[in-house]
Structures are given as C-alpha cells and as structure tokens.
Simulated assay, not measured.
Amino acid sequence: MKENKYLTIYNDLLSKIRHGIFKANEKLPSENELVQQYKTSRETIRKALNLLSEHGYIQKMKGKGSIVLDVSKYDFPVSGLVSFKELAQKMKKPSKTIVCELELVKPDDDLKKHLNVTNKDEVWKVIRAREIEGEKIILDKDFFNKKFVPSLTREICEDSIYEYIENVLKLKISFAKKEIFVDKATDEDYKYLDLDGYEHIVVVKNFVYLDDASLFQYTESRHRLDKFRFVDFARRSHQ
C-alpha cells in the first residue's frame, strides 16, 4: 500500500511539473509541506522525490530543497532504435510528417561509403520534416538500399517506413551504429525547418542493419538545438 502511495505522489508531482504548476528553476514545497499536503510519512515523500530526481525532473540540493529542472525538451533515446511514429506516440504530442523529397538516386561517393553500395546500385532518398506541436523541428534524411527496399510511396513515408519494412516486407531490423555531433545549419535546414534563429543543429547519424548484419539504411537526423535532450541509461558494472 505504501509503494502505491509514493507512486501516486510521484505521478501527481510529475503532472504538476509537466503542466507548469511547478516551473523550471523553482523549488518544490518542502518535505514537511508535502507530508502535510499528502497526509503521509516523510519516508514516502522521500521515495517519491528520489524517483523524480532519478528521472531527471528535479535536482535535490542540500539545504535548499528540490529544484525543478527544465523538462520542456523532448527525450530522444540515444541507445534505442525507434521510428518517429513510435516516438511521437510515446510523447503524446500532436505530430505530423511532411515528405519533402522522395526519389530513386544513384549513390554519390559519400553514399557509397555510408551504405556500402556501388555504382550499379540504386538508393531511395527520402527527406522528411517532422512537426511536433506545430513546429518543424527534425529533418530526417533517409537513404535505403533498393536491394532491400524495392519500392516506397509517399503514403508509406508519411506513415512509418519501419512498419512497412517489418510488417509488409517482413524484414527484421536489428541494430544501429550512431554518431552524434553539432553542425552548422545548412540551406536545406533553413528551407525545411522552423529554426527560430538557431544557427546550429544536433545531428544523429544512423547506420542501420538487418538481423543478418546487412547494412540497409543510412540516416542523418537533424534536430533543432533547443527542443531535444538526448537520453540514455548507464549502469556501472562491478567486478
């Protein structure tokens, strides 16, 4: 019963943080005040606050209480391999995919290197702007080896290419290697995104493989600087 109580308090405080009742950089009520408010023990309040701290919503500071951290950014999983559709469903925010370009191309030197293809191969080039809450803040530049993805349509690209690959083509997407860095915004970024004055972009390069270790996709995902925090979970191993 006590465990349910601290989770109820955690979820209530989290809701108030997300809805701006407790704003970024402000202090939460003291432990004593929360004990009175929720009519529970100090231990239960501490468990709820510890959970908020572990998940990055507050910073507990000795002698100062709990400070609310800025949670206005969208969490982008660094180690996960998820489609934008899956990410949007998890965020529960109004979202939309705009297909800017869809064409079959002959690979240039960079694509040959990134996708391990030759002059004889053809590559699907898909450029999509991702809109969240009315702002275009991600530009996804996807390249698929036609050998593995024989056809693509605008409708598939507006919905989910991964769903099409897994459910229709029956291919198993297995793992990806990633590179993350900050780049200067390009003319293409300015053309397709709402950059809101930002001159730099966070770039995530993905090299995506099927379960037989075939490299079938190269992606360059370009994110507006202020809208994302890239999250991962790490546990130190003990010998």
Rank of each mutant, 00 (worst) to 15 (best):
Q37W: 06
Y38F: 14
Y38M: 08
Y38L: 11
K39C: 08
K39W: 00
K39T: 13
K39D: 15
K39I: 08
T40I: 07
S41M: 05
R42Q: 04
R42K: 15
R42P: 01
R42A: 01
R42Y: 00
E43M: 04
E43G: 00
E43V: 06
T44Y: 05
T44E: 07
T44A: 07
T44K: 05
T44M: 02
I45Q: 02
I45W: 00
I45M: 03
R46I: 07
R46S: 02
R46D: 08
R46N: 14
R46H: 12
R46P: 00
R46M: 10
K47L: 12
K47A: 09
K47F: 11
K47S: 12
A48P: 03
A48F: 06
A48H: 01
L49E: 11
L49Y: 07
L49P: 12
N50E: 12
N50I: 02
N50H: 15
L51D: 09
L51W: 05
L52M: 07
L52N: 13
L52R: 06
S53G: 05
S53F: 03
S53E: 15
S53L: 07
E54S: 07
E54N: 13
E54G: 00
H55M: 09
H55P: 00
H55V: 01
H55C: 04
H55N: 15
G56M: 10
G56L: 08
G56S: 10
G56N: 07
Y57N: 14
Y57C: 05
Y57R: 03
I58V: 15
I58N: 07
I58G: 08
I58W: 02
Q59L: 14
Q59C: 05
Q59N: 12
Q59H: 09
Q59F: 04
Q59G: 02
Q59S: 12
K60N: 10
K60Y: 01
M61C: 10
M61Q: 15
M61A: 06
M61R: 15
M61D: 11
K62R: 14
K62G: 01
K62V: 08
K62I: 11
K62S: 13
K62E: 11
G63Q: 05
G63N: 11
G63F: 02
G63C: 07
G63H: 05
G63I: 03
K64P: 03
K64W: 10
K64L: 09
K64S: 09
G65C: 08
G65T: 06
G65K: 09
S66Y: 14
S66H: 13
S66T: 03
I67T: 11
I67Y: 10
I67E: 13
I67C: 06
I67V: 15
I67H: 06
V68E: 08
V68I: 12
V68W: 05
L69G: 01
L69M: 09
L69Q: 09
L69D: 04
L69A: 01
D70S: 04
D70F: 11
D70R: 13
D70Y: 08
D70T: 01
V71N: 14
V71Y: 02
V71C: 11
V71L: 01
V71E: 06
V71D: 12
V71T: 14
S72F: 00
S72T: 13
K73R: 15
K73M: 09
Y74W: 08
Y74L: 14
Y74V: 04
D75L: 09
D75V: 01
D75Y: 04
F76L: 03
F76R: 06
F76K: 01
P77Y: 07
P77Q: 02
P77T: 08
V78Q: 11
V78S: 06
V78L: 13
